[in-house]
Structures are given as structure tokens and as C-alpha cells.
């Protein structure tokens, strides 16, 4: 499905008579209004980026500089004071490690479980698969508030409260539910002949899954892994409740512990925010293509 989206327009361009395309673009070149529209689109981009700019500007100011010159001025000198203060309050390396462990484990486990479940529904076409899919879809809409209190007690009872395991278990299942739903519909498009040929060769279902279905699903699985990772990384509500201990907190939760503490300088908050968004930004730049492909995959079904 993602393939169709990317291949389609390219083919059309080839099919277009070249003179016609050239003519219409020459005709358009003279309108000055296009600069106006570009300016408007760029203005929107400036508004979108302005908060990031302010964040960077003020993270590198010293406390004195900020209190004298305010948030809009250029820093008098680039100071790392705010960063070192943030690192004194929050154990950033531990939070980073927790986030990496939780997001990575969730992404791969969730995708693996989704692959197995979707195999039963999309290829096996088990009875009541429609009902199973409907339940899975409903669960993606469920507000976490309706689960949180029992989950809190469950984590306490199993001794996983304030450990990464509680959060990994919860998000692996929640994301796998969505993944099963998505993969099942993609698997429905796998050609029957392929499966039948493999079965005739005497391959077991387990073998068919790994040697026929898995290779076809790999691109979609990659998209799922990237998305599960970033969703888990940014998740707020459930980790906030399940990980109150600093040693287990993820990056966003560690940052949010500073909420409402008026004694903390704004520059420190800015430095902390900047440090907290840095890993996501790096991840975004690396996986930008996969992400934009995946947004489409989720939308088109």
C-alpha cells in the first residue's frame, strides 16, 4: 500500500506529454502571487519554529543574563550554567537509559506479538476474526484513565511498580493491539498462491510465517517498530503514575517532576527541555523517511 502511493505519481509524470507539462509550468512562472503564498507558508513555519528558537536562546543564558535582559534578548555569552544545574537536579543519564530500554523493548516485543496475532487473523482467518479486530480497534480508543488505577495495583502486586517492566508490559500490549489490527489488514493482501505453494512444499505454518510472510511484512514491521519506539518514548500518563521513583523515570517524566517548582530558574527548565527533546530530534532526523511513510500506512489502512 505504501508502495502504491510512492510509485503512482511517478508513473503519471512519465505518461504526461512533455510539451504540455513544460507549457503549463512556463505559463505559471510569471505570477508574482506565488511569492506572497510562499511568504505566508514561511510565516506559518516561523510560528511553528519560534518556540524551539526561544528554547535554544534561553537555555544558553546565565541566570543573571536572563533576569536582566529577559527572554527575547540574545545571550550575552554562551553559558552552560543552566545545563549543569539541570544535570544536578535530574539524573539525566539514568533517565536516558530508562527511556532507551523501555522504548526499544516495547517496540520490538510489540511488533513481534503483533506479527503473530496478525498471522492468525490475516492469514489463518480464524473464526470470529472480525470480532477480535473490532475489540482490538476499540482498545486503541480506550482512555488510559479507565485502566490506570487497576494497572497501578497490578504493578504493585507483581512488584514491577517503579521498574521499567511495568511500563514495558503495558505498552507492549497496547501497541501490539494496534499493530495486530494494522498488520492483519496488510496480510490480507498477501497472494494466496504464495502460501499454497509453500504449503504444498510441506512447509509448516511456523515455517510459512517466517519464510514467506515475514519477508513480505518487513517494511511494514519496520514502520511499526519506529512508531512504537517514538510513541513509547513520548508517552506521559501511564509512566507518570507507574514510575514515581527517580531511578525508574523516563526522560519526559524526569522533566515533568520540575513542574510547579518555582524555585527552579527558567534557564534551567529551558536547558532541561532542550536536553529532553534532543534524543527525539535525532531520532526524527534519522528516521524521517520511515516516519512519513508510516503516517501514510496508518492512514490508508
Amino acid at each position: 500500500m505504501t508502495v502504491a502511493i510512492q510509485v503512482g505519481p511517478v508513473d503519471e509524470e512519465v505518461l504526461l506529454p512533455p510539451e504540455q507539462a513544460a507549457k503549463s509550468s512556463r505559463h505559471r512562472k510569471h505570477s508574482p502571487i506565488r511569492w506572497l503564498i510562499l511568504a505566508i507558508a514561511a510565516a506559518v513555519a516561523v510560528v511553528m519554529l519560534a518556540p524551539f528558537w526561544l528554547l535554544i536562546l534561553n537555555a544558553f543564558k546565565s541566570v543573571a543574563d536572563y533576569s536582566v535582559n529577559g527572554p527575547l534578548a540574545w545571550p550575552e555569552s554562551f553559558s552552560l550554567e543552566a545545563f549543569s544545574k539541570y544535570l544536578d537536579i535530574v539524573n539525566y543519564p539514568v533517565a536516558l537509559w530508562n527511556s532507551v530500554v523501555i522504548a526499544t523493548a516495547t517496540a520490538f516485543l510489540g511488533a513481534a506479538i503483533a506479527l503473530l496475532g496478525a498471522y492468525a487473523i490475516g492469514i489463518g482467518r480464524i473464526r470470529a476474526s472480525g470480532l477480535v479486530l473490532a475489540i482490538l480497534l476499540l482498545s486503541t480508543m480506550l482512555p488510559h484513565e479507565a485502566l490506570i488505577y487497576p494497572l497501578f495495583y497490578g504493578a504493585q502486586a507483581t512488584g514491577t511498580l517503579n521498574t521499567p517492566w511495568s511500563v514495558i508490559a503495558v505498552f507492549t500490549v497496547l501497541h501490539a493491539a494496534f499493530g495486530t489490527y494494522l498488520l492483519a489488514s496488510v496480510m490480507g493482501t498477501v497472494p494466496k498462491e504464495l502460501l499454497e505453494a509453500a504449503a504444498l512444499d510441506g512447509a509448516s505454518r511456523w515455517k510459512i510465517l517466517w519464510q514467506v510472510v515475514y519477508p513480505i511484512m518487513r517494511p511494514t514491521l519496520a514502520v511499526l517498530v519506529v512508531f512504537f519506539f517514538i510513541w513509547t518514548w513520548n508517552e506521559f500518563y501511564i509512566p507518570l503514575v507507574l514510575l514515581s521513583d527517580q531511578s525508574a523515570q523516563t526522560i519526559p517524566i524526569a522533566l515533568s517532576t520540575l513542574r510547579g517548582q518555582n524555585t527552579i530558574d527558567i534557564t534551567v527548565l529551558n536547558a532541561g527541555s532542550l536536553l529532553s527533546l534532543l534524543p527525539t530530534l535525532v531520532f526524527f532526523l534519522i528516521f524521517q523517511r520511515t516516519l512519513s511513510r508510516g503516517v501514510t500506512a496508518g492512514a490508508v489502512k
Binding site: 506479538i113 503483533a114 503473530l116 496475532g117 498471522y119 492468525a120 487473523i121 492469514i123 489463518g124 482467518r125 480464524i126 477480535v132 475489540i135 482490538l136 482498545s139 485502566l147 494497572l151 497490578g154 508490559a169 503495558v170 507492549t172 500490549v173 497496547l174 501490539a176 493491539a177 495486530t180 505454518r205 510465517l209
Partner: peptide
């Protein structure tokens, strides 16, 4: 094929 639903089934039940 029901075996393949076991992980998501158990997890979904518990979570």
C-alpha cells in the same frame, strides 16, 4: 492458528 493469538490474547486480557 489460535496459538498465534495466545501472546496478544493473554497480554490483552491482563492489561
Amino acid at each position: 492458528y489460535w496459538w498465534y493469538l495466545l501472546p496478544i490474547g493473554v497480554g490483552f486480557g491482563a492489561i
